[in-house]
Amino acid sequence: MTRKRTAILISGRGSNMSALIAAAMAPDFPARIDLVISNRPGAAGLERAQAADIETAVVDHKAFETREAFEAEVQALLEARDIELLCLAGFMRILTDGFIATWLDRMINIHPSLLPMFKGLDTHQRALDAGVRLAGCTVHVVRPEMDTGPIIAQAAVPVLPGDTAETLGKRVLAAEHRLYPHALALYVTGKARVSGERIVFHEVEADGEGSLMSPTLITREQADA
C-alpha cells in the first residue's frame, strides 16, 4: 500500500494534529504525516510533532507583506517534500483563492460545528444560544468561502442541560479527535470522493446501531456477518 504524503497546517496546540499523527503511526493507515507547518513560531503543536519525530517548519505570516508571499513560502516547503494532501488543524489563517485552487480537492479541514450551521468562530456559544440539542464537528474539503465545501464526515454530541461553551467544547473536541482520522482514511482511500460539490461514497455502509458518526466505516466481513 502506498501511503499518501500528508502535511498538517497548524496555528496552536495541535490537538487534532496529534490525533492524526497517532492514527498515522499504524502501518495500515493510508496516509503518513511527513510535515507539520505552523504560521506561529510559538505554537505548542510544533513540540508535539517533534516529539513524534515529525518534521516541522515555521512560516511566520508576520514576516510577509502579503498573503500571497506567505503562501508562496508554504507552497515551496510542500513541493520540496512532495506533499500530496493538506490537513488544516486549527490553522487560523484565511487562505487565498489561488492557494486553494492549487490544492483543489487535496485540502481538508475540521470545523467544530455541524456545518452548514455555525460557520466561523464561537461555535459552541452560538449553538447554546440557538438552543440546538445536538452539536458536533465536520470534516470537509476546503473551498474559497470559509467553512464550506463537500462534507466528508460529521460527528454529533448531545447538548446537555447546564452546558457552557467550555463543557460543550470539550465534548466536541473529543469527537473531533475520533472523526478527523476516520474522515482522512475515507478520503485518502477513495471511499469518500468529490463529485461536483458533494461527496459520494464507495464501500461505506451504516453500522445499523444508530451511530452519531456518519458515515461509519465497517469491514466487508462485518457487513456480511
Rank of each mutant, 00 (worst) to 15 (best):
A165S: 11
P158G: 13
R106D: 04
P41H: 08
E55H: 07
A127Q: 01
I94Q: 09
M25D: 12
R220P: 06
R193H: 14
E73V: 13
D207W: 01
A206Q: 05
A57C: 13
S11G: 15
E71C: 04
E71T: 10
D207C: 11
P161L: 10
P150T: 05
V200P: 00
K62M: 11
V36H: 00
G169P: 13
K4H: 07
L20S: 05
V141T: 05
L9W: 04
T189C: 07
F118Y: 07
A130S: 14
S18G: 01
P215H: 07
V200Y: 06
Y180D: 01
E65D: 14
D105S: 05
I33R: 01
L88V: 04
R193Y: 06
G210W: 02
P27L: 12
V142K: 00
E145D: 15
G196R: 07
A192Y: 01
A52N: 09
Q154E: 09
D122K: 06
L217T: 00
A26D: 15
H61E: 13
P161E: 15
A49C: 04
E221L: 11
A72Q: 13
L212C: 05
T96K: 03
A63K: 14
L95T: 00
A206P: 10
G169N: 06
A101E: 11
K62A: 14
L128F: 12
A165K: 15
A23L: 08
L134W: 12
L115F: 04
I110M: 04
E209W: 04
D163G: 08
E84R: 08
S11W: 03
P150A: 15
E145S: 03
I218G: 03
Y187H: 12
A69D: 14
L134A: 02
R32N: 10
R171Q: 10
P215A: 10
R178L: 09
D34S: 15
Q154R: 04
D129I: 09
V142R: 00
E47F: 00
T216F: 14
E145Y: 07
I94F: 10
P215S: 06
V59C: 15
A72T: 07
K170W: 11
A153P: 06
R93M: 08
G210C: 09
L114Q: 04
I8R: 00
A57P: 03
I218R: 04
A223L: 10
S15A: 09
S15W: 04
A153W: 04
P150C: 13
F201I: 03
Q50E: 15
G196M: 08
V172T: 12
N109F: 02
R93F: 00
R106S: 13
A223W: 10
K62V: 10
A43W: 00
D97Y: 00
G45C: 09
I151H: 10
G208Y: 09
F64Q: 07
R126Q: 15
A57E: 09
A183R: 03
A51Q: 15
I10E: 11
T167N: 09
H61D: 14
L78R: 00
V204K: 03
E71P: 03
G98K: 06
N39S: 15
A174W: 02
E145M: 06
N39Y: 01
D207H: 07
V132Q: 06
T6P: 05
G90I: 00
N39C: 12
